Simulated assay, not measured.
Amino acid sequence: MATILYTRVSTAEQTVEHQVTQARAAGLVFDQVVTDDGVSGVTIKLADREGGRRLFDLLRSGDTLVVRWVDRLGRNYEDVSDNIRAFMRRGVVIKTIINGMTFDGAAADPMTQAVRDALIGFMAALSQAQAEATKEAQKAGIAHAKERGEKVYLGRKPSFAENQINQVVTLRGEGKGVTEVAKQLGLSRATVYRILKSPSDAHASAMAWR
């Protein structure tokens, strides 16, 4: 039985090393790392990514798949939920680094199955909502720049990735403290406070530098 960590890196602010460090800090031990580098999470399905295809080739019953968050496993609600269920049907256990969630297809109790499936649906929907928010912020920023018709000072390069903005807001909404959020996402407390002060400004800044 193998444990595989899957990482997706789509921006310069994200690194495989950081995701590996986060997994180890969460107490997770893995045998292999499969990576998709420079791949957009909101446009390309998991099965269409090189690393994603490798996951489907490698994972067998009894194996464990570790991901930073469920949004790593697809580009939208349907893709994420379908992939999680496809892996569970194979007998693969899925674990997330953030919040330490576990999705196991071996559950036999109907109530446990119902709660698990409802949670999968909710998390997949949340992932899509985060992706849609990012895309809308990008569109707004691009439109604003075109209207001005001039080169705009971008300000200091942000120390956070686009996908981390919604994760900060979500984790705080779940009652996580700023220190805990910063530790989970590999950010400074000052950065977390800056994002929380104005998520829309944070999106605009990340989009501009992207």
Rank of each mutant, 00 (worst) to 15 (best):
R54G: 06
L171Y: 00
F122E: 11
R89N: 09
K95D: 00
K151Q: 11
K139W: 11
I97V: 15
I4L: 00
V80P: 02
A129V: 12
F122D: 13
T3W: 02
V115P: 04
V181K: 00
S40Y: 09
Y6N: 05
S81A: 15
Q164G: 02
F122R: 13
K135N: 07
Q14H: 06
V66K: 00
A26I: 10
R72H: 14
A145Y: 01
V178Y: 06
A86N: 06
L55F: 05
D117R: 02
L126Q: 14
S205H: 11
Y193A: 08
D71Y: 01
Q19C: 03
T102M: 05
F56A: 07
V152L: 15
E136V: 13
M101I: 10
A133V: 08
L154H: 13
Q138T: 10
S10C: 01
L187T: 06
E136D: 14
F56E: 12
T15G: 13
K45Q: 10
I195S: 05
V93C: 08
A86T: 08
E50A: 15
Q14C: 04
W69G: 14
E78H: 14
A208K: 09
K197Q: 08
R156P: 10
L65P: 09
A86S: 12
D63M: 04
G177D: 11
R8H: 08
A12T: 11
V93L: 04
A106H: 10
L5I: 08
K183P: 07
K197S: 10
G38V: 05
E17A: 13
D104R: 01
L185F: 07
T43K: 15
E132M: 09
H144I: 02
V9G: 03
A204H: 14
P199M: 01
D31S: 02
V20D: 02
A108Y: 04
I142Q: 15
A12P: 11
A12K: 14
I97F: 09
E147V: 10
K197Y: 07
Q113A: 04
Y77K: 14
H144N: 14
A137H: 05
D57N: 11
D201K: 13
G177T: 13
E13I: 05
I165Y: 04
T3I: 05
A208L: 09
A190Y: 08
F160Y: 14
S198A: 12
K139T: 13
T170D: 14
Q184L: 14
T21W: 04
S188A: 12
M101H: 10
A145I: 05
R89P: 01
V181R: 01
E17V: 03
V39M: 08
R53A: 12
V93G: 03
F122Q: 13
M111H: 12
D37L: 10
L119F: 11
